[in-house]
Simulated scan of single mutants.
Amino acid sequence: MKLAHILVAVAVGIATITSWATGTSAEAATAQSVSNLAAKGHSIIRSVYRVVCPSGFGTGFFHKSGKILTAYHVVQNCPNPMAQGFDGHVISLVVQAADEGLDIALLSPMMPVDAPALPIENDDHLEVGTQVATWGFPAGYPGEIPLLSVGYLSGQIVFQNQQGSNVDQWVVNAAFNSGNSGGPLIDIDTGAVIGIVDSKLAPISPQAASAIAALEANPSGLIYSGMGPDGKPINASEAQVVAIVLDELRKQTQLVIGMAIRAQDIRSFLMAQKIDP
């Protein structure tokens, strides 16, 4: 056999072994992540609550302070929120503190809570590609046990909130839906909370948004009677009914991209309330 042929054969053999080893390593890492997820999941579901208000619901999770953390918009204009645990028990809550700009709220249970606390991550040097998970209650899901959604950190985004401040959030490649807001975003490897689920990407063009706004503002035509999210009767014109349906359909849009409040902002919020994160 010529030397050139020998070198080619050796190179092919090395490449084959490397490919096999790399594949085996990746499969092992995936298997380890699945194992970590399964082990932590049994405990995490006991810490995650459905947060219920007359106008809708979201998700929250238990913190070592004895409080429940959620997104502020879940409990906005909600004087008497409730929390429902995985076993069906219901707890009355009081909004103790909130930061509208960061979209974080701290809820005080009116009775002791028997649940494991989820730790807040202290290391802010997380890498894009970190595998993450959240448990929560997406809209339309009536069950008592929170559902799992798994994804990856995809990047970060800076936007200006309604208060005029710049806010930095995680961009997550995962299926977030209405109702997941306020849930814990968890690093699968460590089990620590690295964020709070805040929103999902559901883009709409200015033209479409303007058209829906025009429909919402049109009170003329036949009037239909119905029931609002809070259970109270409402009256709506034909145009307003169409706007309601279009808005509901838009909420079902799923690009599998969402945003989450970062752990450093959660810690800052808690320290502002003189609470050890």
Score class of each variant (00 low, 15 high):
Gln84Gly: 07
Ile194Ala: 05
Arg262Tyr: 01
Arg50Gly: 00
Tyr49Ile: 00
Leu147Asn: 11
Pro203Arg: 11
Leu148Gln: 13
Asn235Ser: 08
Phe269Tyr: 05
Ile91Gln: 13
Leu7Ile: 14
Pro233Met: 10
Gly23Ser: 10
Gln264Trp: 15
Met111Ser: 15
Gln84His: 02
Gln207Leu: 07
Gly88His: 14
Gly85Met: 03
Trp20Glu: 03
Ala21Arg: 12
Tyr152Ser: 12
Ala133Arg: 07
Ile244Pro: 00
Ala260His: 07
Ile188Arg: 15
Ala11Asp: 09
Glu248Met: 00
Cys78Gly: 02
Pro54Trp: 02
Pro54Met: 01
Gly221Tyr: 10
Leu102His: 11
Phe57Glu: 06
Trp135Phe: 14
Ala83Phe: 10
Leu147Phe: 01
Thr16Gly: 09
Gly183Glu: 13
Pro79Glu: 03
Val113Lys: 14
Ile186Trp: 09
Trp170Val: 05
Phe269Glu: 12
Ala4Glu: 15
Leu7Thr: 13
Met110Ser: 15
Val158Asp: 03
Ala28Ser: 13
Phe159Val: 02
Phe61Cys: 01
Leu249Cys: 04
Gly183Met: 09
Gln84Leu: 02
Tyr72Thr: 12
Val48Trp: 04
His63Tyr: 02
His73Asn: 01
Trp20Met: 07
Leu102Asn: 14
Ala192Cys: 14
Ser178Leu: 06
Leu106Glu: 14
Val94Asp: 14
Gly143Cys: 03
Ser268Gln: 12
Val167Lys: 11
Gly136Leu: 09
